[in-house]
Structure formats: C-alpha cells, structure tokens
Design a protein around this nucleic acid. Structure first.
Lengths: 195, 195
DNA sequence: AAGAGCATGTAACCTGTTACATGATTAT
DNA sequence: ATAATCATGTAACAGGTTACATGCTCTT
C-alpha cells in the first residue's frame, strides 16, 4: 500500500491539506507508517489529477493558500477497493536487530547504549500512543483503538524482552582490539586521526 | 543500513556465495530484513570492487561457477565501523495495521479473514524461528539467539494481542452497500464492466 | 515427466528520502 | 530575538523490487 492510498484513506475520514495529513501520519500512524512532505504533496497532486479528490483553495494572510482536499465518490470507491485487495504486508526493518545479531563485534559500552536507547524509543512510542489516545472520545473508531493498542502492546513486549534478555549479550571489550577500532575511525569518513 | 553492509556482516562470519547469502537472509533475518537476488548480487559486486571482499571462483559441473566471497581485513574494519554508527533504525511498515485502522470500511468476512491470516503469519514466523534455532549448538552466538528470541517474542505478543482484541472490530456488513462494491470492482483496473 | 533446487546475473521500474527554496506569524 | 508553527512545493538521488534471461541436476 502506497502513500497515495493512505492519504486517500485519511481523506475518507475528513478533508485536510497536506500539512494536516503530515501531522496525522505523525500522530496516528507513527509506529507503523512514515511519510514526509516529499511524498505527501506529490501524492495529493496525483490523487487530484485522477479525480479521486477535489481541491479547494482557502486563501490565508501572509502564507500560501491552504489547499484543502476532499475525497470524491470515485475516491471513496477506489479506496474501498484498495482495502479489498489481498495479503496486506506487515514488515519490520531493523538495523537494531542487525546490530544485536553482530553483538560480539560491537564494544560493550556501545552495546549497552544501544540497548538503553532502544528501550527509550519503545518507551517513547508507548507514551506517545497513550498521550494521543487519552483524549479520544469513547465513541472513537474501533479500528483506531485497535491499532493504537497494538502499537502499545508491541512496544511494551519489546521493552520487556530486551530488559529480560540483555544479559545474554556482552559485546566485545573496548580495549581488546584497539588497532581495529583505530583503523575503523580512520576509515570512517575523515575524522582527524588523533592518537 | 543497506544490504551491502549486511552482506558484509554475514561474510564476516563465514565465506559464502550469493545464493548462500540469500538463504541466510531467509532463515536468519526473515523477520526483520528482506533481500532478493536483485540486491544481493549487485551488492557483492560492489563490495568486491571496493576491496572489502575477495572473490574466488569454484567451477561446478553443469552450472555457473560458484563465486565464493570472503571478507578482507579492510572489509572487517569497514563493517565494524558501520556497527559503530549511531541510531540504528527499527521501523515497521504495516498495510495490515492500515487496514485495521479503516476496519469499518472493510466488510466483516474479509476482516475476519485478514485477522486469521495475520495470526497465521505470526504463528508461522514463530514456528520458523523455533525450527531454525532448535538445531543450534549451545555455544552459538549470543547475538543470534537474542535476535531469534526477539522475533519469537514479538510474534507471540502480536498473536496474543490480536486474539484478545479482535472482538473490538466488527467491520461493515457485506450487504450494506452493494452499490459501492459493484462500483469498486468496475473501477478496479479494467475488469470488464458487466451488469 | 514435472518440479524443486542450484547458480549466475541485468535492466527497467517504482517508491520514497533528502535537500533545497520561500516566507509570514505566533509563542517563548 | 529566537525558535517553532503554518504552508506550499520541486528535483535529484538512493535503494530495493520485479521481471527477465539461462540451464543443468536431483528428487518425486
């Protein structure tokens, strides 16, 4: 599912401009779908050209006119058809896990730092979800609640796993192969070579 | 972290040809990193050109020579430097969650199907991890164990969450808006327009 | 006889990211 | 004053996916 379809989906719930959509992506979909302006604006232009959304310009004082997009009947139809396509994906891509896989080639201090900051991120994610959901009225859509709950449950499970299993990982003592690390830094990308 | 770096990482553990690497990706990294031949072979060529790996051709009878790649000292250094870079990512991209978010626009039958098949996938993932780890010797790398355990824990947590919370989602009755669904099919992508 | 597995790769394509470009208003 | 927020977009680039192209061997 591409960003175009997702924009259309958000517009099926409420009209919005590109800027608004970006904010919605960042609050509602933060834990499972990212999108920047560089993909949202072109997506909206494409949707408008295809007649799946209408655009209404609202002049502002001192800033670019707000381009408010509203879904059309054709758009709604198209979106619901997208939803009826099979095999939705669910893919993780994690450099963090890659690093953990190679833990014995990472020095101990850094390894601990990585684990701590990953726990921090998961904690932030859970907190973020809690923050956005606590203001939701009791009749808010079930789908939104389900998805938020999923994100929170995963973040909590991940934190728990790391806390309970980090003892397995020791990493490589920092001083053990100083030569390699010095070489690494030299090669890195122009850090000045010092001691 | 790109596929090139990951290939280098795998080669830091053992020499291998492109075909072997693909298999390793599919067994070890299945749950958090995907790679096809279309990215692996070019990656290996690049690594060889950069001097980070050496290539040795082993002739076969009746099939293309096996190109066995082995990491060089420069490669090892480079890889360890990559591991020392900051902020490793951990990103989920899930069409499944998108669909669940819009659950009230999906018909009930399909929604149940999606939930069932997602549980099935998570179950498969956990089973896959169990299968590959059960043959690991007790002295196998801690990182590999940690990562496998993480994948299993997440798959189990996800399954549990879905099973305990799917009752929240009802979806839309299939018969409620037949017109829309018919329209959807017409618009889909050149299905012949019939009644 | 059919299909899975072994073994290599290329080329076009799709999609999204990053950096750039602009500039007023509002809050700290 | 400084930073954040509002509001639009483009263009070059990076990275991976999919389809294509080839062909023998081993298992069922």
């Amino acid at each position: 599912m591409d960003i175009k379809t997702l924009c259309l989906g958000l517009l099926s719930l409420d009209e919005a401009c590109g800027y608004d959509l970006k904010k919605k992506f960042e609050s509602l979909f933060k834990h499972f779908f990212a999108a920047g302006y560089g993909s949202i604006y072109p997506a909206l232009a494409d949707l408008a050209e295809a007649g799946l959304v209408d655009c209404r310009e609202v002049p502002q004082n001192g800033r670019p006119a707000r381009k408010v997009y509203a879904i059309t009947e054709a758009g709604r139809t198209f979106f619901q058809d997208s939803l009826s396509r099979a095999n939705p994906t669910h893919k993780l891509r994690s450099d963090f896990l890659v690093m953990m896989y190679f833990a014995d080639q990472v020095d101990t201090d850094r390894l601990q730092l990585l684990l701590d900051s990953r726990i921090g991120s998961f904690h932030d994610a859970a907190a973020h979800i809690e923050r956005i959901t606590e203001s939701w009225p009791s009749d808010s859509p079930a789908g939104a609640r389900f998805v938020a709950g999923f994100g929170k449950a995963m973040a909590e499970a991940a934190t728990r796993y790391i806390e309970e299993n980090r003892h397995m990982l020791k990493g490589q003592a920092k001083s053990q192969r100083p030569d390699v690390h010095r070489q690494a830094h030299r090669l890195a990308s122009g850090l000045e070579e010092r001691v």
